[in-house]
């Protein structure tokens, strides 16, 4: 069972995560179907900027984050932004969206000028996340764990970051034991997604340059 302190940590992170939404008008724009490649590029760029802003708002609410060294705060978000966004996109893609919305979104991404070499692993990742049937709690905790990873470049006080990440990992592990008692590997599977995210992050920089060239 989760103790009182862990319950509080969980509900705090979930509440912060639930507030993590891009503005409605921007989400609507994504579903309008008339678009040229150039408009698509601009829109996806605008979306990414908005997602980073939302991500920072979430991160600021993570217990202890604002006590970290300011430059370490920036290094953590900078190192994890792409991974947190992939995780978020996976969640959105796996939701039951209104009829046809997934198709429009997928088409928009496929027509964005990004090479298939990058698109295919991304949609594979969405699929593997979908198979885990993660709850909102798991998404919130896994996102927090991704952001509070001490092994990002330029982190000065690794120990301070570890101290924030560890209790969240513990909560996730217990949460998995409670809610997935038929699958003892569930927690390990969730952590496995973090490895996949690292790979996607690694390819992201290359992906952007190829996109810009196109």
């Amino acid at each position: 069972e989760l103790n009182q302190e862990q319950e509080t940590l969980l509900s705090y992170i979930v509440e912060a995560y639930n507030k993590c939404r891009i503005p409605q008008d921007m989400a609507k724009k994504l579903l309008q179907d008339q678009f040229s490649t150039e408009e698509n590029f601009l829109l996806l760029t605008e979306m990414a900027t908005s997602q980073v802003q939302v991500l920072v708002e979430f991160t600021k609410k993570l217990p202890g984050f604002q006590t970290l060294d300011h430059e370490d705060q920036i290094a953590l978000i900078k190192g994890s932004a792409v991974e947190a966004m992939f995780l978020r996109s996976a969640q959105i893609f796996n939701r039951k969206l209104p009829q046809g919305h997934n198709v429009v979104l997928e088409e928009r991404i496929r027509k964005s000028g990004i090479s298939d070499d990058y698109i295919t692993p991304m949609f594979n990742f969405y699929k593997t996340v979908g198979e885990l049937q993660m709850t909102q709690e798991e998404h919130a905790l896994l996102t927090a764990i991704t952001i509070l990873s001490p092994d990002r470049p330029y982190i000065k006080d690794l120990h301070a970051v570890e101290k924030l990440q560890e209790p969240i990992l513990n909560v996730l592990q217990i949460f998995c034991k409670i809610h997935h008692n038929k699958d003892p590997q569930h927690f390990a599977r969730l952590l496995g997604r973090l490895t996949e995210l690292r790979t996607l992050n690694h390819h992201h920089a290359e992906m952007l340059s190829s996109w810009r060239m196109n």
Binding site: Q53, I74, A81, A205, S209
Partner: peptide, 22 residues
Amino acid sequence: HSSNTIGLEAIIRKALMGKYDE
């Protein structure tokens, strides 16, 4: 790539300072 990284960092710095707070 480097200009993108600078762009990302600028967005993060502004957001951390609360410039996008509503």
